[in-house]
């Protein structure tokens, strides 16, 4: 475990120089599907993951242990007390209540880091495919970085991805997003949000790794801003790498469910 942590640190320190554009900013352009999108991967030889053996080697425990490990994460959004029952109910009913279960998009910030980025001097183009997009379908975001201001919130229709505007803070790309619907969740566990949510994503490239982290401000329902766990993705070095098309999502399980167990 210590050895893999050390390896992780070495890899996070970056492999090679970070390429820069002609205006001096880090160039985020690339296919960022060169590795797992999250840390929790059961592979002994993957420095980005932990090896988590299922108790007794059963599939039953494999699923439940993963759920327990996820629930043990101390980094949770702190909801105002009047919403605690609502979060718990959503969580318990996740098999039907979670929009991701019903083939809906993930939305920002749940869709996480993109699988491909194209960076120009005026905008960023993000491309996502499911399932790493934490929702369904081929998704994209067009994020202006030309210094414009947000549209006033009361003139925005609430959407899954909102209105995103990016700017550089040193070598970190900071993406500010408002204008959400209140349908998407921040993550599994019933983590809902209001239409007044404000999301700040920070993206930093170090060599061949990209680190993404989002902070959620939602004073309507949260006691304080929630900074989600960072996710690190790797550059896909294959020059011919492509994104697989996300085939249509059709939910066929609901009618067969006999209990509320979910991940």
């Amino acid at each position: 475990m210590q050895a893999s942590l050390l390896l992780l640190v070495l890899i996070l320190a970056g492999q090679g120089a970070t390429p820069r554009t002609s205006d001096g900013h880090p160039d985020l352009t690339g296919m960022w599907n060169g590795g797992p999108a999250r840390g929790l991967v059961i592979a002994k030889d993957d420095p980005f993951g932990a090896y988590l053996a299922a108790r007794d080697g059963t599939l039953l425990n494999f699923e439940r242990d993963n759920t327990i490990i996820r629930r043990m994460d101390p980094n949770k959004p702190l909801y105002k007390p009047e919403f605690w029952e609502k979060v718990q109910k959503f969580d318990q009913d996740g098999n039907t209540a979670d929009p991701s279960f019903g083939c809906m998009p993930g939305g920002v910030p749940r869709m996480g880091p993109p699988a491909k980025i194209v960076q120009t001097s005026k905008e960023l183009l993000f491309f996502y495919v499911s399932p790493p997009a934490q929702g369904w379908g081929d998704q994209y975001r067009i994020i202006p970085t030309d210094g414009r201001e947000h549209t006033p919130l009361d003139q925005l229709d609430g959407t899954w991805k909102g209105e995103s505007i990016g700017h550089w803070e040193g070598d970190t790309m900071v993406i500010d997003t408002i204008g959400f619907n209140d349908i998407s969740w921040l993550d599994i566990n019933g983590y809902f949000h209001s239409e007044n949510m404000h999301v700040i994503e920070r993206i930093r490239r170090d060599g061949d790794t990209l680190t993404w982290q989002a902070t959620v401000e939602d004073p309507d329902v949260l006691i304080k801003p929630w900074t989600m766990n960072p996710r690190t993705v790797r550059l896909n070095a294959d020059p011919k790498a492509t994104l697989e098309e996300s085939l249509p999502c059709v939910e066929r399980d609901s009618s067969h469910l006999v209990n509320k167990e979910h991940h």
């Binding site: 999250r38 592979a43 599939l59 494999f62 759920t67 979670d98 991701s100 209990n259 991940h263």
Partner: peptide, 21 residues
């Protein structure tokens, strides 16, 4: 990997919510 990828990444029901191991 496909099993693993299917678990933490996608919000979905558990196998045991639908099938008998």
């Amino acid at each position: 990997m496909l099993l693993v990828m299917a678990l933490p990444v996608v919000a979905h029901h558990s196998v045991q919510a639908e099938f008998d191991l």
